[in-house]
């Protein structure tokens, strides 16, 4: 869903260069439950990095560290060289996050959801905000939803509104938590196309947490796989197509074996 060419782009991508992310020896545990253990990787400015892994492997927890919503047990996360947990980092670096549920403000219309950030931070006048909001809605083909409330939208629309809301922030770093979960294959492909086109148009650094193999193989610059609290694979989609590690191959290309089902093995 590319941006329409006849509309002036009100976003100032040139003034907001993409930022890099460094995850350094990150360990996180909740009580006695270890979620992340000595996880380290770097995301280059302007890159699409897809983090994959089984359910409950700590992908979303890692993403929450990047945006400063969780404090590490040890290690650190740097955004543009600054500690992600520091309040100043969020003031200086614009980090947009698309939550798995969308996390839209249910009491506000779609328009007001998008206008909230520029209104609160006085980044534009009301006509300027209107222009930015309508442009973001147009990019994602959501012009007709401006006056609707989130409860009136479908799952796919909510995800797109959440992306549009993040886009209005003119982010330097855009994080997606399971953007294609609970969507049909066509809508999943659409969301993948949106993520890739936003990166191309706005040169925003993108981290996507997902189970979606097709998304990772088609839009990622690099892919990481998180399993058993550690990163077990870090490489390009080309390397991922023919994985050498049997654990990675087993996760990405599982065979459905009706004669020897996995859940029976788990029980024993």
């Amino acid at each position: 869903m590319p941006c329409s060419s006849h509309t002036r782009n009100p976003f100032t991508a040139a003034e907001t260069p993409a930022v890099g992310v460094n995850v350094e020896h990150l360990t996180k545990s909740f009580g006695s439950h270890l979620v992340l253990q000595d996880v380290s990787f770097a995301v280059e400015p302007g890159e699409i990095f897809v983090l994959m892994g089984p359910s409950g492997s700590g992908k979303s927890v890692l993403l929450r560290h990047v945006v400063g919503l969780e404090a590490p047990s040890s290690g650190r996360v740097l955004v543009n060289g600054k500690d992600a947990l520091a309040a100043q980092t969020r003031e200086h670096e614009r980090i947009g996050m698309v939550f798995q549920s969308g996390a839209l403000f249910n009491s506000l219309t779609v328009y007001d959801n998008l206008a909230l950030y520029p209104r609160e931070h006085h980044t534009a006048t009301e006509p300027g905000i209107r222009e930015k909001v309508m442009h973001a809605l147009q990019i994602l083909s959501l012009e007709d939803t401006a006056q609707k409330f989130p409860s009136e939208l479908s799952g796919g629309m909510k995800k797109r509104v959440a992306i549009a809301r993040a886009l209005v922030m003119e982010p330097q770093l855009l994080l997606y938590d399971e953007p294609t979960s609970e969507l049909d294959p066509v809508m999943s492909a659409t969301i993948s196309e949106i993520i890739a086109s936003l990166k191309d148009e706005y040169h925003v650094t993108t981290i996507v947490v997902s189970h979606d193999r097709e998304l990772a193989l088609n839009i990622a610059d690099r892919v990481g796989i998180l399993m058993d609290s550690r990163i077990i694979f870090l490489g390009t989609p080309a390397e991922l197509r023919e994985p050498k590690d049997p654990q990675v191959a087993g996760f990405l290309y599982p065979k459905i074996d009706l004669k020897h089902p996995r859940f029976k093995k788990l029980e024993t």
């Binding site: 919503l69 939550f99 403000f105 249910n106 609160e120």
Partner: peptide, 22 residues
């Protein structure tokens, strides 16, 4: 509580809009 559970409060924090303020 509903906003917190639906991650709306987290969304505010990522937008650098302190919940205590708004």
């Amino acid at each position: 509580a509903s906003m917190k559970v639906n991650q709306e409060v987290d969304a505010l924090e990522t937008m650098n809009i302190p919940p205590a303020r708004m």
